[in-house]
């Protein structure tokens, strides 16, 4: 083969290569973008500022049914209900309250007497240790009568939830929550909850070996 024929062969081969490339490009024969794996949208419970529980004050505000708080529907007025303890000196929650009340306020069962907080003379009121009577929706002051430093922090906005405006002015207010909006007064420790789903990787294949612990 002389030089010229060789060139013709090379050029022919190139032309064929270019044409097949063109066809390949046109058909998008390789490396096409695969559709991404679906990521389920997160449940709205994970992005709305709902509270752990609804307090009496909140129920009042939303005009919910408050018949549960009508103590004298069952109890007799002016007659403090009896308190019973088991042999370990744990309070026995009467059957009528067992569904809604678990007594677990304070460690070592130090706070297991209903009338540490409720007024035994008037069950619809609360009472502080120094005998001040408070309405049910004023419970925060009752909590503060024992939990001094926390109450101080809460008062400064440092403990507990806030919302609305950091730059509070008339018409743009800072909302504050009360203790019992989050804490159950009978069992104040915040219960564990299921976390929102963990993040998804950009390239899912690389996620394989992710265990929950190292």
């Amino acid at each position: 083969m002389n030089q010229n024929t060789k060139i013709t062969v090379v050029v022919g081969a190139l032309a064929v290569a270019f044409l097949s490339l063109a066809a390949g490009f046109w058909a998008n024969a390789w490396g096409h973008q695969e559709a991404r794996e679906e990521i389920p949208l997160v449940d709205s419970q994970f992005n709305t500022p709902d509270t752990f529980r609804q307090s009496y004050a909140e129920l009042m505000r939303i005009k919910a049914d408050l018949s549960d708080f009508d103590c004298y529907a069952c109890h007799d007025k002016g007659k403090p209900p009896p308190i019973r303890y088991d042999k370990n000196h744990n309070i026995v929650v009467p059957q009528e309250h067992a569904g809604s009340i678990v007594m677990a306020h304070g460690s070592h069962d130090r706070n297991n007497l209903c009338f540490n907080c409720h007024d035994e003379q008037n069950l619809e009121l609360l009472q502080t240790r120094d005998g001040k009577q408070l309405k049910l929706f004023e419970s925060t002051r009752l909590c503060g009568s024992c939990h001094g430093p926390t109450y101080r922090d809460w008062d400064a906005g440092v403990h507990g939830r806030t919302g609305g405006f950091w730059d509070a002015k008339p018409n743009q207010e800072r909302t504050r929550l009360n203790c019992v909006d989050c804490h159950n007064p009978h069992k104040p420790k915040i219960p564990g909850r299921h976390p929102a789903p963990p993040p998804h990787m950009l390239h899912p294949v690389r996620q394989v070996e992710h265990a929950t612990t190292h």
Binding site: N47, T48, D50, R161, W166, C182
Partner: peptide, 20 residues
């Protein structure tokens, strides 16, 4: 605009604090 950030408002335990 004077409001709190969204992450603060949603925090169920009040762990987040923001301001001037």
């Amino acid at each position: 605009d004077g409001r709190y950030p969204a992450c603060l408002e949603v925090c169920p335990v009040g762990a987040r604090k923001f301001g001037n």
